[in-house]
Amino acid sequence: MEQTVEAAKADSWPATPIPERMALQYEVEQFLYAEAALLDGRKFRDWYALLASDIHYWMPIRRTVTSDNLDMEFTQPGDMAYFDDDLTILDMRLKKQEAGSSWAEEPPSRSRHFVGNVRILKVAGDEVTVEVAFYIYRSRLNSDVDTWVGRREDVLRRHGDSFQIARRHIFLDQTVIQSANFSTFF
């Protein structure tokens, strides 16, 4: 689940010449910034259009463990999670918001997605595995503020002259969820 440094090294990507790496890095970053702008601009259907038909949108549960039990830190696929979505469920999430009676988002919240520490871990065929650190600020109603910080592992797949999101695995830096809900996309 966690992309190891060893696995990244085994890949030929780090040996690729710098100009080529810079070009892809730029392309990936611009895509991620544009994606974040769609979410923060409430253009959810445009955001949805960026998702691949086989997307896995997953947020496992994290818990405090001792350093010799770090392999138990996150729940695994098939265990409990917060999100374990395919494209159909993501579509329904949007339909729920669009219905106007999704009370956790009606009135809608205000969000800002910060995406940083963008690292390309692997390039294989038409897929790029990208790790990012995220910081999401959300305010709701008059004064409710939530922030979520964590790591994301995305697989971006070439799609025309842009990308589609084929995988989004979200690893929060929180164990007990401090927010009232996750009605925002990560």
Binding site: I61, T75, Q76, M80, A81
Partner: peptide, 11 residues
């Protein structure tokens, strides 16, 4: 119990 506890706070 299927592995994992959801833990969250409510105001």
């Amino acid at each position: 119990i299927v592995g994992g506890t959801q833990e969250y706070g409510v105001q």
